[in-house]
Nucleic acid binder design. Structure first.
Length: 374
DNA sequence: AATGCGGGGTT
DNA sequence: AACCCAGCATT
């Protein structure tokens, strides 16, 4: 008897009873009320001038923005988006650029597989689809870096196709509105939320609706201290009615994250260029340029000795800490100046770089280290 | 079904 | 220090 529909009927005084009388299907009815309330709110308070919003819609810009916005906040994305679109204004420009150039424009955003997938997908669209976005959900979903939610977002916002999305904002809004318990990463919970998102997605104004429900989650229905007093659907929100706003959506069970230790070799030549290696394509900082990494002290010392740097001239700098989503990294930079030009060939690509330039693409903590010490 | 993958922001 | 954020790919 605490079903959502029962609660809704009790509290839904301010939305017209005519709606209830007109249709006996409470779910369908609810969807219509929800859509109308949300779209009215969007017309007054939604965001309509983000850099990737244009009339007519630019599918390329929407795609790039959607990838950048994965696990990344709007305010962080905007300057990256501007620079990226200036340098790669079209899918053709992106497809014909080198991966290194793309990564340079991504450095600092994190989740670098997104940039590699973006580049790969640009080439696929350019060659297999004549530069035009495939406008079918299942086709889009097969492209690297595009999952169900991102595909639905592109198709709804760029092509006005009716598809439901389920990003972090929508998960939070729906988990609260329907009082759905359980971590949304769990398959059964995710399945429920996808069903509800699809139930609510309207056949008309779907582009506005998609933006509206994300705006609601991003600006009012925030993780902490949501502004329920300004929310267009607050009167029917189960979490609000049952005072469970702070508990929903259920957070994932957090486990202690490990600390990993390593050394980073900072080798300078006579011109004070720094020696960098290109990292493997997969794993942490995949494809980026970074300092030679060593697991233990002996390994660093040996590495420097091979380059004619004596053990006694090494400068052991203070340990620096960086936190990833799944582990802490404590790394100690080891600084030395080499009298000789370095000629030993490596498995990885390597070279000397001016530390004060934006090239090549470096991880943020390495960039920070070099700017601090050089 | 669970894990790997960054970095910036907030509290 | 803990937690969050316009997810997806891999295993």
């Amino acid at each position: 008897m605490t079903s959502w529909a029962a609660i809704l009927k009790k509290v839904l005084g301010n939305y017209s009873k005519a709606c209830f009388n007109r249709n006996s299907d409470s779910l369908l009815l609810t969807a219509e009320v929800f859509q109308h309330s949300l779209l009215d709110w969007y017309d007054c308070h939604g965001r309509k001038d983000l850099p990737w919003q244009s009339k007519p819609a630019n599918a390329y810009a929407i795609w790039v923005s959607e990838i950048m916005l994965q696990q990344t906040q709007v305010s962080v994305v905007i300057p990256y988006f501007q620079r990226f679109m200036t340098r790669f204004p079209t899918v053709q420009a992106l497809a014909s650029a080198s991966l290194d150039r793309v990564l340079e424009h991504w450095a600092g955003l994190g989740y670098y597989a997104r940039a590699r997938n973006l580049h790969k997908t640009a080439q696929i669209i350019n060659t297999d689809y004549a530069g035009q976005f495939p406008a079918q959900l299942d086709v889009l979903c097969r492209l690297p870096g595009i999952g169900r939610s991102t595909a639905a977002a592109i198709l709804s916002m760029a092509f006005s196709q009716r598809h439901a999305i389920l990003d972090g904002n929508v998960k939070r809004v729906l988990a609260r509105f329907y009082g759905i318990q359980g971590w949304p990463g769990k398959a059964s919970v995710s399945k429920q939320l996808w069903q509800l998102s699809d139930d609510l997605t309207p056949p008309n104004r779907v582009a506005d609706y998609t933006q509206a429900i994300m705006d609601l989650g991003a600006t009012l229905c925030t993780r902490r201290n949501p502004e329920c007093t300004a929310c267009p659907v607050a009167s029917a929100c189960v979490a609000r009615i049952t005072k469970r706003i702070e508990e929903l959506p259920t957070p994932r069970k957090q486990q202690a994250i490990p600390v990993k230790h390593c050394y980073m070799a900072v080798l300078l030549n006579s011109k004070s260029d720094v020696y960098l290696q290109k990292r493997a394509a997969s794993g942490i900082w995949g494809g980026l340029w970074s300092l030679p990494e060593h697991a233990d002290k002996n390994s660093v010392i040996e590495w420097f000795q091979q380059r004619l740097v004596d053990k006694t001239s090494l400068k052991w700098l203070p340990v620096r800490k960086h936190t990833f989503s799944h582990f802490h990294l404590h790394f100690q930079p080891v600084l030395a100046q080499s009298g000789q030009p370095h000629t030993i060939s490596e498995f990885a690509q390597s070279g000397w770089f001016k530390p004060d330039q934006s090239q090549p693409a470096m991880p943020a903590p390495i960039q920070k280290l070099l700017s601090d010490i050089l």
